[in-house]
C-alpha cells in the first residue's frame, strides 16, 4: 500500500484503466463465461448436437422461470438476505391467476390481463409480508421465508383443494406458448427483458444501489441516510412479485395451474446466484452473474441428459458443483486476504 502514494493525475488514470481491465478478468462473470464456453464446446464435441438452436431453445425454455426469479433473488442476496419462499409463491401466483380466469370460480372469470395482475399481486403481498416480518418484527430472513414457503404452499393447496386447475381460456395461452418475434418463444423473451432491465437497474440505478450499501454494512447505510427497512421490504416485495409473475407465465405455458409446482426452485435459484458471484453475507452479486450461473447449471443439467447420465446422478452432481464453485471462491478470497492482514495494520 505504501508504494502507491499520491500519484499524479495521468498515472492514476492509466492505473485506473489497468485496474478496470484486471477487475474484468478477475470478476466472477468473466470466469463463468469462459467456463460456459468450454463446457458448451466439450458437450458439443461429445454429443454432436448440443450447440443447436433446438437444444439451446429447450434449455432456455426450461430455465426461463428461474431466470425471472433470479433477478429478485440476486437483489435479496445483495441486500444480505435470501428468499426461500419463491418456489411456493411461484405456485400460488399461477393458482390465483387460474382461479381468477375460471368463470365457475370465485371471481367469475376476470379479463386475462387483470387475472395475471392479480396472480402477480399475490406474490407482492407475500413478499411484502416477508419484508415486514424481517424488518419490523426482526425475524431473520431464513425463518421468515421458510415460514412463508410453507404458508404459500398451503394457501395454494387450500384454494385448489389439492387438485390442479385446468380448462382455462385459450386466449390466455398466447403469453406462454406464443412466439411473437423471430420465432423466439415469448417466455424466453419476457425473461430476457426482465433480466436485462434488472441488471441495468442493479448496476446503475441510484435507488437499487442502496441495496448494495444495505447489504455491505446496514449500520453504516443507516447512518448514511439510507432507509434500511424500506430497502429490505422493497427487495423482498420485488422477489415475491417476480416469483409469482413467473408462476403466472408458466401456467400460461403449461395450461394447468398445479399447486404443487415449483418445489425446490428456491434452492436452484439461490445456487445459481451464488455460483454467479453473490454472497450470503450481502453486498455482492449481479443479475448478470445470476444469469450466467443459471446458464452454467442449465448446460450441465442438459449435458448430463444428453450424455445419458442416469437421472439419479443429477442432484448429486449439482450439489458438488455448487460446493466446488463456492469453495473455490472462498479459498481464493482467503488466499488473497492473507497479505491483507499485514497491509491494513502492521
Amino acid at each position: 500500500m505504501e508504494t502507491a502514494t499520491k500519484e499524479s493525475a495521468p498515472t492514476l488514470r492509466t492505473n485506473a484503466l489497468l485496474n478496470a481491465l484486471k477487475q474484468i478478468v478477475r470478476a466472477r462473470e468473466f470466469f463463468l463465461v469462459v467456463l460456459i464456453v468450454f463446457i458448451a464446446i466439450v458437450l458439443h464435441l461429445e454429443t454432436g448436437h448440443f450447440l443447436t438452436g433446438r437444444n439451446m431453445r429447450a434449455i432456455a425454455l426450461g430455465f426461463s422461470a428461474h431466470g425471472i426469479m433470479a433477478v429478485g433473488m440476486a437483489a435479496a442476496l445483495v441486500s444480505g438476505g435470501f428468499d426461500l419462499s419463491v418456489g411456493s409463491v411461484y405456485a400460488v401466483g399461477g393458482v390465483v391467476t387460474a382461479v381468477a380466469l375460471r368463470e365457475d370460480m370465485a371471481f367469475g372469470g376476470l379479463p386475462i390481463e387483470l387475472a395475471m395482475a392479480l396472480g402477480t399481486l399475490a406474490g407482492v403481498i407475500a413478499g411484502f409480508i416477508n419484508g415486514l416480518l424481517i424488518t419490523k418484527a426482526g425475524i431473520n430472513p431464513f425463518i421468515t421465508t421458510l415460514g412463508m414457503m410453507s404458508i404459500a404452499r398451503g394457501v395454494g393447496y387450500v384454494i385448489t383443494e389439492g387438485s390442479p386447475i385446468a380448462r382455462l381460456p385459450q386466449e390466455f395461452f398466447k403469453y406462454g406458448q406464443g412466439a411473437a418475434f423471430f420465432g423466439i418463444p415469448n417466455v424466453i423473451l419476457i425473461a430476457l427483458v426482465i433480466i436485462f432491465i434488472g441488471d441495468i437497474l442493479m448496476r446503475r440505478s441510484a435507488v437499487f444501489r442502496q441495496i448494495y450499501y444495505v447489504g455491505g454494512n446496514p449500520e453504516a447505510a443507516r447512518l448514511s441516510g439510507i432507509n434500511v427497512d424500506r430497502v429490505r421490504i422493497g427487495v423482498f416485495t420485488l422477489s415475491g412479485m417476480l416469483a409469482a409473475f413467473a408462476g403466472v407465465l408458466s401456467v400460461s405455458r403449461f395450461t394447468v395451474a398445479d399447486p404443487g409446482t415449483g418445489m425446490g426452485f428456491e434452492l436452484q435459484v439461490i445456487a445459481a446466484c451464488i455460483i454467479g458471484g453473490a454472497s450470503l453475507n450481502g453486498g455482492k452479486g449481479t443479475v448478470l452473474g445470476a444469469l450466467l450461473g443459471l446458464i452454467f447449471v442449465g448446460f450441465i443439467n442438459n449435458g448430463m441428459v444428453q450424455l445419458r447420465v442416469p437421472v439419479y446422478w443429477q442432484n448429486l452432481a449439482m450439489g458438488v458443483i455448487l460446493l466446488v464453485a463456492v469453495g473455490s471462491d472462498t479459498l481464493s478470497q482467503r488466499l488473497q486476504a492473507r497479505p491483507r492482514v499485514k497491509r491494513t495494520e502492521a
Binding site: 450499501y213 455491505g216 454494512n217 449500520e219 447512518l223 455482492k284
Partner: peptide, 9 residues
Amino acid sequence: KAAGLFLDM
C-alpha cells in the same frame, strides 16, 4: 469499521 465504512466496497 462497524458503523462508518463499507469495508468490502
